Amino acid sequence: MEKTKDDPDFWNDINTLRDPAYTEFDPDDLVGLHDILKETVDGLASLISVRNQAYRRDGQEPPVGVAISGDYQLAVLHVLRQVDRVVQEQAANAAKIAGHQGASYPKLGAAWGITRQSARLKWPDAVPARGQQTHEPIPLAYAGGTAAIHHDSDADAWWYIADGADGRHEECEPVHTTSTDATAAATAFLIAHTKRGVSGL
């Protein structure tokens, strides 16, 4: 069963890369994607096409044959340029997030259908160099209390800061080897410092 936000290990699970990360498309799904994209591009091209705008000013719907005119296809090409720009921006963002969560350049390249060398050239900042990786704090709520799991880059170790439901506060030293160990320690602290009658189970 997949974890929910109520589970103490939810954020640790979110920050753990699954392998494989995806399944291949069914051919019918790709046909559907093609149809959706074509419909969207045609709609935008019709909007900016000077020829179609002229028809609409005359109170007419552009005839179907307009779509084969060279100037209309130039409008299509212009739309596709914008689509490509958006795709490239989204791809760069996805690659950076995946890379900072532990995905390697071979994995990024495989997802995009290119070699790892090409992936490194395409997204040079996606995968942090060893020793420069950054980790977002992992929030934790359990047994009525809250905590945040942090990584100390200098010590290359994990630590936590926690507030129990009974008001007890703790900030440990960076002594945990993994985020899982730090999360387990923070969870134990929160369980030990619940209000009477409060349980995380």
Rank of each mutant, 00 (worst) to 15 (best):
G131N: 00
A192K: 05
E61C: 07
T183R: 08
V83K: 01
Y72S: 11
Q60P: 04
T178M: 00
H169K: 10
A67M: 11
G167Y: 04
P63A: 02
L80I: 11
G70K: 12
P27M: 01
P124R: 00
I97E: 12
H150S: 06
L108A: 05
V175Y: 14
F189Q: 01
N15G: 12
E61P: 06
P174K: 02
T187V: 03
L80G: 10
A54K: 10
A147T: 02
A94N: 02
F10A: 07
E170T: 08
T40C: 15
V175M: 13
P8Y: 06
T134S: 11
I161Y: 06
A129K: 09
L30Y: 06
D6V: 09
I114H: 01
D29C: 09
A188R: 05
A188F: 04
I161V: 11
G145L: 00
S199F: 07
N12I: 11
A147S: 05
G145A: 00
D154T: 13
G70Q: 13
T194N: 05
D7T: 05
S118V: 10
I36L: 12
R116Y: 06
N52S: 14
D42Q: 14
G70L: 14
K3N: 09
G32Q: 04
L30H: 05
D28P: 11
D181Q: 12
G131W: 02
V31P: 05
L77H: 15
A21Y: 08
D7R: 01
G99E: 06
R116D: 13
G144V: 01
T134Q: 12
Y72N: 07
A21G: 14
I48T: 11
L108G: 04
P128V: 07
V66W: 07
